[in-house]
């Protein structure tokens, strides 16, 4: 299939847009969980870049890099969320609402 119109540049532009949205979100939002999600957005933008460039350069290295990014993202999320949970426990504020929700 001939994909003359679809050059690597398109992918890069798309990735850039995604990255920018993620970055802006990271700055704007204050919920730690949503901020984490924005980081994921940025990571995904990078992933797209890797894969697109890898395809453009006919190199599997791009995909391998994405693989590692995935692993690192998973690790980061696990630790990050564990931190959020731990902090929330200490503060003991966020769950009280639910205790009252249970009545009745």
């Amino acid at each position: 299939m001939d994909l003359s119109g679809l050059t690597t540049g398109w992918y890069l532009a798309l990735a850039a847009a995604l990255f920018i949205i993620g970055a802006v979100g990271l700055l704007v939002r204050r919920n730690p969980l949503v901020m984490f999600m924005c980081v994921e957005l940025m990571l995904n933008a990078v992933n797209v870049t890797f894969v697109a460039l890898g395809a453009g350069l006919n190199d599997v290295g791009g995909q391998v890099a994405v693989f590692f990014v995935l692993v690192v993202a998973a690790t980061e999320v696990v630790i990050g969320l564990a931190l959020v949970v731990a902090i929330n426990r200490r503060r003991a504020g966020a769950t009280t609402d639910d205790v009252s929700m249970l009545k009745g």
Binding site: T7, A13, A17, F19, A55, N58, D59, V60
Partner: peptide, 29 residues
């Protein structure tokens, strides 16, 4: 950020031209 990235992409319309394409084990084709 948008400006920087946009400029980069727009000015180098085909970013890959001139870069060596891989072969051998890492080749995708």
């Amino acid at each position: 950020l948008a400006a920087v990235l946009g400029t980069v992409i727009l000015t180098t319309a085909d970013v890959l031209s001139g870069i060596r394409r891989s072969g051998g084990e890492r080749a995708l084709d």
